[in-house]
Amino acid sequence: MAPRRSPTARHRRLMAELSRLREDSGLTRVQVAERIGSTDTTLWRYETGLTRPRPSDVSVLTEVYGVTGEARDSLIQMAREARQRGWWHRHRQALKPGFDSYIGLEAEASVVRTYEPLVVPGLMQTEPYARAVIEATAMTQAPSEVDEKVSVRISRQQLLHGPGDPIQLVALLDEAVLRRQIGGRAVMREQLEHLVDLGKLPNVEIRVIPFSAGAHAAMDGKFCLLSFPEPEDPDLVYLEQATSGLMPEDPEEVRRYTLMFGSLSALALGAEASATFIAQMARRCSAP
């Protein structure tokens, strides 16, 4: 299948490549700017992602850096792709700051590893459950804004089923996620049954961290790790708060969360035991 392509991920790769090429050339931003008739501030904005360069800008830079052939063509094509707009772009005003960038990177990720202590992760929510969560957390938003957020959340779930290579999802859920009744008994039962069904997919692994596991390394809150199909794209971590999202790319911080996820995995029930536990919780929701 054709690989998924995301403008956000293409832009992330492009800015890293432009920075690497300049450093490898031994030139400063000022020296490069003089050669292309631009400013060092413009180059800084290209390399930090604040500005998306045009393909013609990248073409000029490849001449300065001595990049030719397929490597040059690849960079120019990357610039074209980076300037496109993903489907999520039109919804950016309805999303918390930083989350549109996360969706763009998630769209090209090969593996998503997520730890959730309170609610079912968005990629696995049913529509009624998603609406109940969004209504509870939105507090002051108009119904139309709630509808838009629900639509975005459900649209993201196409990543689990295609088109293209489906994303690999590994979800570690605190037991509280299964016990917190959101949207009423019927909505919760449907959601739990949906988790059992999702866990049967070859690209989805759902594991439960039981209360009996006690204290653990992630008690400060939820997080999500993204890995990408190309080795040139390093992993990143996404941290979500009530009003914003943060994606620190410091390798040491990403490493810390990677180790944390491994620690949590050691505490979680296996996939089969987790499925049995979730099914039991769903039956409890059916009981009078």
Rank of each mutant, 00 (worst) to 15 (best):
A242Q: 10
R255Q: 14
E272Y: 01
P53K: 02
A218D: 09
A132G: 06
Q84I: 06
R256W: 15
W88K: 01
A282Y: 03
H161K: 11
S151E: 15
S244A: 15
N203T: 13
W87L: 10
G66Q: 08
M219I: 15
P202R: 10
G122S: 11
F261C: 05
T48K: 08
V170L: 14
E232F: 08
D147Y: 07
L61R: 02
G104N: 00
I154R: 04
D250H: 12
L178P: 01
V111N: 04
E205M: 13
I36H: 06
E108F: 02
D57N: 11
A287H: 15
P231E: 08
E193Y: 11
P251F: 14
L118T: 11
Q84E: 14
E108H: 03
G164L: 08
I134D: 05
V67S: 06
S101T: 15
L201C: 10
S101M: 15
A275L: 08
G199V: 07
E17W: 00
Q168P: 00
R153I: 12
L192E: 05
L264D: 05
D57W: 09
P3T: 02
W87T: 07
Y65F: 15
L123D: 02
P97H: 13
Q241M: 13
P143W: 11
G184E: 06
E47M: 04
K149Y: 03
E175M: 07
S74T: 11
T258K: 10
A268M: 09
C285G: 06
A186W: 05
R10Y: 02
L195T: 03
M124S: 09
T41N: 10
A287C: 12
C224T: 13
A107Q: 00
V64I: 11
V111T: 13
L192W: 05
K96N: 12
R131A: 02
S212K: 08
D197G: 11
P234W: 07
L192S: 05
P234A: 09
G214L: 13
M78W: 00
W44F: 14
S151W: 09
A266D: 12
